[in-house]
């Protein structure tokens, strides 16, 4: 079960960043090609409307950011000020870290609740009642996005959904930490693939070490 949630989270952010890139690529190519006075092609391109691309890109990235922030709790990527707590006695540090994690739970939990309320008031209430034929009273239909004309409450769902997930991740991490004292740690330096990527620079260095006493090294500027 947990594995499916993990995969879903990863799949969502992977898809969103990839798709957003392709959307903007297509929009730029389209705009540029439509400016070329090629008979036939230009006529066709001018009928294709790509005006929605920027808006879609923004929404995809906001969704990515919300779910990615939850994923980030799991991978330990969120940075904090560690000056003080790193020097505290172990037990104090543990309390402090737990306090920090609980604050994470608190903040994201509140935001999830507020976000849900906001989305509800922003048109979901109307949409749901309307769908099930309930009395609408003085409820008003929520706004829509300017270009895509999607109901904004659906777009804004990123806040309650993302924050709930983030809240859950904070609880998970806090629970693990309380039991085992282990925190997920993002190895910030480990940009994957670099181990093999940088071999050449290392080779160069080794070559330098090997030849630094050669008489040719004079040309190398090494004193």
């Amino acid at each position: 079960m947990m594995k499916y949630l993990d995969h879903l989270e990863e799949w969502i952010i992977t898809f969103l960043i990839g798709a957003a890139t392709l959307v903007i690529f297509a929009a730029v190519v389209h705009r540029y090609a439509s400016g070329l006075p090629i008979p036939g092609l230009q006529d066709w391109l001018l009928t294709v409307n790509m005006s929605w691309a920027q808006e879609l890109c923004i929404y995809m990235f906001v969704w990515m950011a919300k779910f990615g922030a939850a994923y980030g709790v799991r991978t330990g990527i969120h940075v904090g000020v560690d000056v003080l707590i790193n020097r505290l006695p172990e037990k104090w540090r543990k309390t402090s870290v737990l306090l920090g994690l609980s604050s994470g739970v608190l903040f994201t939990g509140i935001i999830a609740t507020l976000g849900a309320g906001f989305v509800w008031e922003n048109g979901m209430h109307y949409a749901v009642f309307n769908k099930f034929g309930m009395a609408l009273g003085d409820l008003y239909e929520g706004p829509i996005t300017p270009d895509l004309e999607w109901p904004t409450w659906i777009v804004y769902l990123a806040i309650p959904l993302g924050s709930s997930l983030m809240c859950f991740r904070f609880m998970q991490v806090a629970w693990t930490f309380a039991r085992t004292g282990e925190l997920p740690h993002h190895d910030h330096s480990h940009v994957d693939g670099l181990d093999d990527t940088i071999v050449d620079a290392t080779d160069a260095l080794e070559e330098y070490e090997a030849h630094k006493f050669d008489k040719n090294a004079e040309q190398g500027g090494v004193k």
Partner: peptide
């Protein structure tokens, strides 16, 4: 074929398209 900046609006979009510009 002129690329014309507009503010986000369906009508302005269609206005520019009506004369073959790219909004």
């Amino acid at each position: 074929g002129q690329k014309m900046r507009i503010q986000s609006s369906k009508v302005l979009d269609s206005q520019m398209r009506s004369v073959g510009a790219i909004p």
